[in-house]
Design a protein around this nucleic acid. Structure first.
Lengths: 262, 262
DNA sequence: AGCGATTGTCTCTTACAAGAGACGTATGTA
DNA sequence: TACATACGTCTCTTGTAAGAGACAATCGCT
């Protein structure tokens, strides 16, 4: 395992061994920390992003000085720093949709008791931008920032509305079509689902990510036909059809409220 | 090394002729966006960070591809992107103090009706990490992430407890000692204030940043003697001594609750 | 239309950062 | 005590990214 491919970025497969741009290394470092979700030693970090140790030390020092990373308590581990938090808050402040969306999601999960999420496309990937756990005894929720293959989710079907078929194929890898339990979706079916979701204005999937839940999603528009985000509810798979229907109604209402009138 | 400093410093010198490391340029770009607090054209961005246009285009493209920046709606302006928000949330998740501190600040401002803030040192600068506006008709609050000279604030006096005099002198520039209204503080007085604040376990300043408010602050400890943050209340300068006293009591109690037992 | 300013892309050069690797130190463990 | 593995810093070389600048395409203003 020497090339390891690293970045989710880049269309061109440049075999490594060649020198990497410092900035790219930094982006990989950040992404790596995002996946580990915990402080990590610099040596391990270097291994993790497959970068030379000396380079990693240099970059980490820059980032720590800049406040994007911080040394963790014990002194030789690093994780995200305050600066990133501040920049993130700036993003929230400049983004009405996100700010209001977080609010709506929190309301929704409080009112219904179900886990609720705000989802967006993030450089071609499905991303849970905010989630609120609901009140059920067992935790259904998944962490904020988690990235999941688009075909596994109801939201994914809504978020891809309006994309060309070719674009969709670009965003969906072969692996993405294989569910956690091993079942395999057909790309054609997925694309048909997208069209159907766009037409009906909502989407429900059952037992895709796991066997115990279904996912209800409704689109949030940033303009005519432009799906900017989705709100979704994750409920037990045996939720009655009646309750499911009323939840969908509520969900669509709230999602519409979030949408830009345009 | 030509200009060094970089960091918060703005469009100062065009010394150079020398090439800048890409990563540094990126850090400056992020910092610049943080100060402007709004989307900005790439050309203006290049001017703002005093970088060549071609370089700026390249870097911005990388950052947009990575999701750290996003093109704003109209298409030729950039601002912070979702990735930074996600990283910021990761930071919050990994940081008990911040998470609980935000909560306490929100509680405090709701209970007292006053503007309340959580403050920390951020690479040698005083930073408002979270603030909650309070319920007074006039807004006292200042934005999250704002950076203010240490000597202007009550929190600054607490945050510097335990630092060597030399270190303090390093962190405080001449300009920092000049208040917004032109008055000039003496470094010696400031250092004495720090010692006093450390001894009494809280700090009050009146009419420093503006003539209408006073600032009450209490330290949050991350270990014995280690001030990690402060909570503070910003109240009208004519608040009665009695109420001030009771607010300080409340504040110290909450700050202590936040502190690590250590 | 005419003119200046701005935008986004591209090419080419060379200053300099990425990387290999050696070094001294601090661990842990047989 | 030796031995192995990790850490943090340093030096030197060379591949390459930062930057200057040319270019066409828009925009905005008389």
């Amino acid at each position: 395992m020497q090339d390891g491919n690293a970045a989710a970025v880049s269309a061109d497969e440049k075999i490594s061994g060649s020198r990497e741009k410092g900035l790219n290394r930094v982006l990989e470092i950040l992404e790596f920390l995002h996946t580990t979700q915990r402080a990590i030693g610099i040596g391990d970090l270097a291994k993790g992003v497959n970068a030379p140790r000396s380079t990693t030390y240099t970059l980490v020092r820059s980032l720590v000085d800049a406040g994007l990373l911080e040394m963790a308590g014990d002194g030789n581990r690093v994780y995200f720093g305050k600066k990133l938090y501040l920049y993130g808050m700036d993003y929230v402040r400049g983004n009405d949709l996100l700010r209001r969306g977080r609010q709506e999601v929190d309301n929704l999960s409080r009112e219904t008791g179900e886990t609720s999420e705000l989802c967006m496309l993030q450089s071609g990937r499905y991303t849970i931008v905010h989630s609120s756990p609901g009140t059920r005894p067992f935790r259904i929720s998944s962490a904020t920032g988690l990235q999941i293959p688009l075909p596994w989710t109801a939201s994914g079907r809504l978020l891809l509305a309006g994309f060309q078929q070719a674009q969709i194929e670009d965003m969906v890898s072969e692996d993405d079509l294989v569910l956690p339990d091993g079942r395999r979706l057909l790309l054609g079916d997925f694309i048909a689902d997208i069209a159907k979701a766009e037409a009906t204005g909502y989407c429900v999937t059952s037992g895709l990510v796991d066997a115990y839940t279904k996912c209800l999603a409704a689109p949030v528009f940033s303009g005519p036909g432009r799906v900017e985000a989705t709100m979704c509810l994750v409920v037990p798979i045996d939720t009655s059809e009646e309750r499911t229907g009323s939840l969908i109604g509520l969900l669509r209402d709230r999602a519409a409220r979030l949408s830009i009138a345009g």
